[in-house]
Design a protein around this nucleic acid. Structure first.
Length: 288
DNA sequence: CCCCAGGGCCACT
DNA sequence: AGTGGCCATGGG
């Protein structure tokens, strides 16, 4: 079973999947230019997706012999569309890059798209799991989270879908701490799952580009565990690039590149990439 | 033992 | 609005 989607004229599959580290976090897997992922559909069906590019087409294959309904395919295509930002317009950003000496490669290679998860819940959880830790620990925590709480793909022992908020609530904070080893982040993740599951947070509305960024910022700030860095990262995942992710990596980068080893106060760091307006995050990202 | 990691919360100014 | 102590965990 497979489906073929026409791609935007300017599209770089390898860049869209690997220019950001998200492809290394389960349930994403990536090898030999194929993006793989176990996905739970809204009707409970668990499918394994294999996604790759063939010229101007995107091929989505299902890793088993199941026949999917049109409605299921519709959901898959909708999710893949979101993950790879197929509908997002990068023309303004590319125009700015073409006027910049250091950003020619972005235009030439059609860069700009950064992989994201189908659901905001998943991307917020993963973002919180990047805070105050190392990337290797983020991978470990995410792997534990998916393996211990996610629904298993029927045909293989080690493949799981990303856990639903309800799956998290079936366990307690202690399980998240001791077994999933999320540390103090356990309370944040548990509370997020509770608020999503009980309708306190409506995360899907944040996907709507019509909603002003200021409103999105206010809603994201309500989430415990989401500070300035996480806010910027989640906004990027939502397709809003106004805020810089000022974390240890950001500081390391600008310290070497712009301040010759002498780091100014954070208030000054927030002013960097100002000339990039609503594309500050992308400007920083592709400046590295 | 220490410090830090792609930080953030809370209490106190 | 800004600052310092604290937070679980693992690696150096």
């Amino acid at each position: 079973m497979k489906k073929v989607i026409a791609l935007p004229e300017k599209f770089n599959f390898n860049a869209a999947t690997t220019d950001h580290g998200w492809y290394m976090l389960p349930p994403f897997h990536h090898n030999e230019n194929i993006l793989n992922r176990v996905e739970a559909l809204s009707n409970g069906n668990i499918v394994k997706l294999h996604i790759h590019q063939n010229h101007d087409q995107l091929i989505i294959e299902i890793g088993d012999k199941k026949t999917l309904t049109n409605k299921e395919w519709e959901e898959i295509i909708h999710k893949v569309n979101w993950m790879l930002r197929l509908d997002e317009d990068f023309s303004v950003f590319h125009k700015m890059c073409s006027d910049s000496q250091d950003m020619q490669e972005v235009v030439k290679e059609n860069k700009g798209r950064l992989l994201r998860s189908p659901s905001i819940f998943e991307d917020i959880v993963k973002t919180i799991l990047t805070t105050n830790t190392t990337w290797s620990r983020t991978i470990a925590m995410t792997t534990n989270f998916v393996t211990l709480l996610g629904e298993r793909y029927v045909d293989e022992l080690e493949l799981f879908a990303f856990p639903s908020p309800e799956a998290v609530l079936k366990r307690d904070r202690n399980f998240l701490n001791q077994d999933v080893k999320l540390g103090y982040r356990s309370d944040y993740i548990y509370e997020l799952a509770w608020n999503v599951s009980n309708g306190v947070y409506d995360l899907d509305v944040l996907k709507n580009p019509e909603v002003p960024t200021g409103e999105v910022v206010q809603k994201l700030k309500e989430i415990k565990g989401v500070g300035p860095y996480a806010l910027s990262n989640i906004l990027m995942l939502l397709g809003r690039y106004d805020f810089l992710p000022v974390d240890s990596e950001f500081k390391k980068h600008v310290k070497n590149k712009y301040f010759a080893g002498e780091l100014p106060p954070v208030s000054q760091l927030q002013q960097l990439y100002k000339e990039w307006g609503e594309f500050k995050f992308l400007a920083y990202w592709f400046d590295r």
